[in-house]
Amino acid sequence: MHSILLMNPLITPDPGLVIWTIIIFGLLVVLLGKFAFKPIVASLTERQEAIQTALDSAKKAKEEMVALQAKNEDLLKEAKEERNRMLAETKELSIKILEESREKAKVEYGRLIENARKDFQTEKTAALMQLKNEAGKLAIEISEKLLKKELSDKAAQESLVTTLVNEAKLN
């Protein structure tokens, strides 16, 4: 068994092939390592880093964009609020002005009415005075005429006196 194992060329390492394998594989390790795999791995690492950096900066840009958008929205919101506030103020002011003018108009109107009333009162008083005077004058004229007519008749005079006396008594 031992000799069969040793003799079998399948599992007996051939010294020549061992030496050649060491030479070829050793040379390959040196040459491929230096001229192929080092530059390849370096370029791969570089690319990986470049891609990572690009991804990171893209992410950062996106975040900045979002922040900017939020800021814009805030600004817009503020502007809207400002506008609303200004609108409200204007409305208030206009209402106030309207109110004030209405108030003023009322006062003016009242004053005018008052003046008119006063004028009217004065006119009325004057008219009444005049009417009184006229009525007085008319009454005197009428009494004068009556007296002239009555005093021509004796009996009428006496009855008049009596009437007057009675009236006076009653008073």
Binding site: L28, L31, A36
Partner: peptide
């Protein structure tokens, strides 16, 4: 070995 050198040095140059 020749193929390996050919292929990977080409790749390294392309890199």
């Amino acid at each position: 070995a020749f193929l390996l050198l050919l292929v990977f040095i080409t790749v390294a140059k392309a890199c």
